[in-house]
Write a protein that binds this DNA or RNA. Structure first.
Length: 873
RNA sequence: GCGGGCGUGAUGGAAUGGUAGACAUACGGGACUUAAAAUCCCGAGGGGGUAUCCCCGUGCCGGUUCGAGUCCGGCCGCCCGCACCA
């Protein structure tokens, strides 16, 4: 090397290229571009004010794909916006006195700046926040259209009340009895709420999952389980007359009508109307129900073992055993909001029923015989038998399979009458409930409805949209500021003009994120979408986000697509063709001797393996190294992206995030890892300069053609493999391919420096130029700087993906492993496509093989052409 | 409890049923340096012979196969999701 190369300086180069891309509007996309479209979208963030490493990983992945697809000639839509409504803004208002709007937009500005330093290829001209009036006005329009189309309903319902956030939570937002955001124990309250009728689409949402081939199986399974379809029978039991109630029958839902001959009791939910009625005259039952409500859903995980019941004194007729009766209990394990809120218990074949029967000493009658069991000996102990088998002890169902018996008994009850109704009706039930969207909050999209004493809930006329949030609100007392506002809610009824009240509830923020992907296709349109344009872009080709949204957000968005289709805003049912859930960013945790968490930047590490020790970087106090966990502020195991960008540059951060782990798995952030990524950045830079200098050297000899071909094969194979890796979102293997190419080129450059050749320099130049293009999606700034250094025209961001010469992907000769009895003993190199006879002869003549054969002929020789030889002796 | 996934060197991880450990990180040795950093070269699954040879090896046990990290069955362990849904 004749002169030292200056180090690549990302602090200078990165801002320079970010400006160049912005000036050239490189990533702004036109809806009129005739090229094939590709829509890549990462889940938009909540504007907390600072980006974190999880964002860096998420958006780096999407950016690689977007830049790659651009290089492949697609018209790529890659937008960015803000999921900007929600409670933190109100909490900040309470704590700091700043207005939610001010706080939110300031956060957005800060995060936008941070995103820009990452060099992400977003079309910023399409940016919006869900709290923009422009956006939520259109969301109100969608609400009204859904309402008109019968997709919205208002009903009184028991709701999950979060006492800390003072708001209602959807079932899905309650995790282990606690609010998903506040962590407070959730209480039950009864309120009138607005609902989207997502359950109308239960079957459709379930069936369509089969077609979502670009989704992870895991997510598809989670959605199926969430929708929770089960097929069963609604069955009427006639009651023995009782003075306690006028009711004459109890309706149950069961998926196991085949076990009816094994029934030994009826159980009602504590919330069942009949239970409520009976409790009025039965203090003990009243206490039982009250006790149940005290526990509610909150402690269900703890008390799951204990099945408790209260006998009502009522009996029903056994529907298939004339003269027999079954006792009616109220039981704590029966849910009111699933099926009919009542069940029949068959203890032999349901674990819960068995636990209950053992406790209250009820009959356990087995009626399903496992296939190889002895009917005389088979008995149920502490474990119910829920598997397949033959029905027995069941008269006309005997000998049938479980499935056949279900059909038979359904027909039997279908043909009988109780009162004026069939005794049994086949019914499909879903776990999926309607989506309650009412929130008693200020910082959300106002529900555009006016309540009139005469006309009830009246939609706000389209012409009166938007219903804007008032700016002059205060947060000095609990509850909803919209409700407290002196004037905002007082309006005239749109029908009669008499004084009326605005709906003061706002929408669940999941509504905001259920259609933003559609809005991005034409973000400034007067209507929510321009269907022709939205339909051209959607579905999103590749959606990328965290697995924590695998159920709710994706299910709601799928519902929205259907609802928007029904109301003419969209033309497809499924919004996301490809879905990818990336893993988290994790880091070791550190604690000092008083048990307080310590930031990684304050920790000094030494040693390795079991002898690793940590101490405080400044005080030297000992630090305990804890488990590796998701980065979180509470455990302080966080690394600040700004800091990383300042120290190493955005490219290095992106590269490390992509290189270290498969994208769907968690990636462990390590100092060593980021440093290694930084070194690679410098190696590329150095290699580019070596290639330039070698080109300028005078060549006295020629590199042998075979060697040149070897290099060119390396180059073209890497290009091929990197492309395939990115297409398959296997970024880590694409990175490995780039490393191999770079190592190979560096080695070649070293030999050329000693003995320069013209043809060698040309091959090296080709390789380095292609290398720069291959790294461009991942380290775009470095690639641009190298591109200029190599004297290439324009920007690499606009360059086409390198062509691959298919001829260079195949070899004339092939190395075949030679095994003896399945164990590798050597290798032969033969022309590709060699006949088995040639291969066998070569293989058998290997020393190692000949030695093991010891003069005897092989028993068998298996040859997989061009792959492997196995000699069996 | 039910459902899904995963178990490979010190570490992250590669391997259409066909040469296990690519690539990276960490580590060790060497070169350069007054020294260090950086950089470059070399080594490396374990064990034995110490040369170029042999044995063992992808959580454990068994099976299918000429051949199993990969497929099948049964265990063990970890992770994720759902959780009284009749």
């Amino acid at each position: 090397m004749t002169k030292p190369i200056e180090r690549y300086n990302p602090r200078v180069e990165e801002p320079r290229w970010q400006k160049a891309w912005a000036d050239a509007r490189s990533f702004e996309v036109s809806n009129d571009d005739p090229r094939q479209r590709y829509y890549v979208l990462e889940m938009f963030p909540y504007p907390s004010g600072r980006i974190h490493m999880g964002h860096v990983r998420n958006y780096a992945m999407g950016d690689v794909l977007a830049r790659y697809k651009r290089a492949r000639g697609f018209n790529v839509l890659h937008p960015m916006g803000w999921d900007a409504f929600g409670l933190p803004a109100e909490n900040a208002a309470k704590q700091t006195g700043s207005h939610p709007k001010t706080w939110t937009y300031a956060n957005i500005d800060a995060m936008r700046t941070q995103f820009k330093t990452m060099g992400l290829s977003f079309d910023w001209s399409r940016e919006f926040a869900t709290c923009d009036v422009d956006y939520y006005q259109r969301q109100q329009k969608l609400f009204l259209d859904f309402l008109a189309a019968g997709l919205v309903t208002r009903k009184k319902s028991k709701v999950n009340w979060d006492p800390v956030d003072e708001t209602v939570l959807a079932n899905e937002q309650v995790i282990d009895g606690r609010g998903w955001r506040s962590g407070a124990i959730v209480e039950q309250r009864e309120l009138t709420q607005w609902f989207f009728k997502i359950s109308d689409y239960s079957e459709d949402l379930l069936a369509a999952i089969d077609g979502l081939e670009g989704w992870p199986d895991k997510v598809r399974t989670m959605q199926r389980n969430w929708i929770g379809k089960s097929e069963g029978l609604r069955l009427l039991f006639e009651m023995l007359p009782s003075a306690a109630t006028a009711a004459t029958s109890i309706e149950v839902f069961t998926t196991r009508p085949d076990t009816i001959f094994g029934a030994s009791f009826i159980a009602l939910s504590p919330d069942h109307p009949l239970a409520t009625e009976l409790a009025a005259a039965d203090p003990a039952l009243r206490d039982f129900i009250a006790e149940f409500h005290r526990h509610g859903t909150a402690t269900e995980t703890i008390e799951k073992a204990e099945k408790l019941g209260h006998f009502t004194g009522l009996f029903v007729k056994h529907p298939v055993k004339p003269g027999a009766t079954l006792p009616v209990y109220v039981a704590n394990f029966v849910l009111m909001d699933y099926g009919t809120g009542a069940i029949f218990g068959c203890p032999a074949h349901d674990q819960r029923d068995l636990d209950f029967a053992r406790k209250y000493d009820l009959d356990v009658i087995p009626v399903v015989l496992p296939d190889d069991a002895d009917p005389a000996a088979f008995a149920v102990g502490d474990e119910a038998y829920v598997g397949p088998g033959r029905i027995y002890h069941s008269e006309f169902l005997d000998e049938l399979s479980v499935d056949d018996a279900k059909r038979e008994i359904a027909n039997y009850f279908g043909a009988r009458q109780v009162g004026n109704r069939p005794q049994g009706v086949v019914e499909t039930n879903y776990r999926l409930r309607d989506w309650g969207i009412s929130r008693q909050r200020y910082w959300g999209c106002p529900i555009p409805v006016i309540h009139c004493d005469v006309h009830g809930a009246v939609p706000v006329p389209d012409a009166d949209l938007p219903v804007k949030l008032p700016d002059d609100v205060t947060f000095d007392r609990p509850g909803n500021p919209l409700d407290h506002h002196p004037t905002w809610k007082h309006v005239a009824c749109p029908i009669c003009g008499e004084p009326a009240r605005r709906e003061t509830d706002t929408m669940d923020t999941f509504v905001d994120s259920s259609w933003y992907f559609a809005r991005f296709t034409e973000p400034h349109a007067a209507d929510p979408t321009v269907p022709a344009i939205a339909n051209a872009w959607l579905p999103v080709d590749q959606y990328i986000g965290g697995v924590e949204h695998a159920i709710l957000h994706l299910l709601y968005s799928r519902f929205f697509a259907r609802a928007m289709r029904k109301t003419g805003h969209l033309g497809m049912d499924e919004p996301f063709k490809g879905m990818f859930t990336q893993g988290m960013v994790v880091h070791e945790t550190y604690r000092d001797q008083s048990g307080d968490w310590v930031l990684p930047v304050d920790v000094a590490l030494e040693g390795m393996g079991d002898s690793r020790r940590a101490k405080h970087a400044t005080s030297g106090a000992p630090i305990e190294i804890g488990s590796i966990e998701k980065m979180s502020k509470s455990k302080k195991n966080v690394v600040d992206p700004d800091e990383i960008v300042r120290t190493y540059g955005a490219d290095t951060a992106r590269w490390f995030m992509l290189s270290d782990s498969p994208p769907e798995r968690d990636v462990q952030w390590t100092e060593a890892g980021i440093e290694g990524a930084g070194r690679f950045q410098q190696r590329v830079w150095k290699l580019v300069h070596e290639a330039i200098e070698i080109e300028e050297m005078s060549a006295s000899s020629e590199t042998p053609a075979a060697e040149i071909e070897g290099i060119r094969k390396l180059i073209h194979r890497a290009a091929q493999a990197v492309g395939e890796g990115i297409e398959g979102l296997r970024f880590n293997s694409a990175v490995a391919q780039i490393y191999e190419l770079s190592n190979g080129l560096a080695k070649f450059a070293t030999t050329l420096e000693a003995a320069p050749t013209a043809n060698g320099a040309a091959a090296l130049s080709e390789g380095v130029a292609k290398l720069v293009q291959l790294i461009a999606p991942m380290m775009p700034h470095l690639a641009e700087t190298c591109w200029v250094a190599l004297g290439k025209p324009g920007m690499v961001a606009d360059a086409a993906w390198p062509d691959v010469d298919p001829a260079l992907l195949v070899d004339d000769t092939v190395a075949m492993a030679v095994q003896v009895n399945g164990k590798r003993r050597g290798e032969i190199t033969v022309p590709k496509g060699s006949s088995n006879a040639v291969v066998e002869k070569e293989a058998l003549s290997l020393d190692a093989v000949a030695r093991m054969l010891d003069g005897k002929p092989p028993r068998k020789v298996i040859i997989v052409p061009d792959r492997i030889v196995n000699v069996v002796i």
